[in-house]
Amino acid sequence: MGCVLTKKSRRPPGYEEPTVLAAETPFTVSEVEALYELFKKLSSSIIDDGLIHKEELQLALFRNRNRRNLFADRIFDLFDVKRNGVIEFGEFVRSLGIFHPNAPVEDKIAFAFRLYDLRQTGFIEWDELKEMVLALLHESDLVLSDDFIETIVNKTFSDADTKGDGKIDLEEWKEFVSKNPSLIKNMTLPYLKDITLAFPSFVISTEVEDSE
């Protein structure tokens, strides 16, 4: 009796069936299969193990594996739901699903809140907001005085922290976003609607018919 490698045995750890992922996200089965093509590419760019490592995400975002960025680090941490240092396929699809144009706005608002809640305390705190402004200024080589930055952070807090307890909770954040909807503009990737056009190779290998 020989040893036969089935298609399933070649699937990386964390692989989940497209039908399951399509049922839980705004993607169709075909789109999940197209995302698998993208995932395979990203997850083999440095270490070919079928998992996206932080350096691989950095390489894809910046064309540079060593380029660090506070927000890219936060994105990685949020995609890495199991917190095991890598992004698995299921985590990748579920997280990208939040950025789909058809995903619920509530999910986008909650994701952005978690992105900005740097220390995961359940609140966006004054120090965290200042740290994020400093990080993006550093990134863009812009120089602003500390006083000026604190004025911006104070003003934002006076608008968003309606309870006045020095921190922004999810409820206050939802209210603030409803008044400033442009704040979650970066939580939608229109490109995700055309994902099957970008990665069409799934068409010849697809095993499952879309139900839609």
Partner: peptide, 25 residues
């Protein structure tokens, strides 16, 4: 109008990358 600037607006506009880059070939 610096004082009317919203820190989150600043962050969301200039976070330094776009996830769209993931789809570049």
């Amino acid at each position: 109008k610096p004082v009317s600037m919203n820190a989150f607006e600043l962050i969301s506009r200039a976070q330094g990358f776009s996830l769209e880059n993931l789809f570049e070939k």
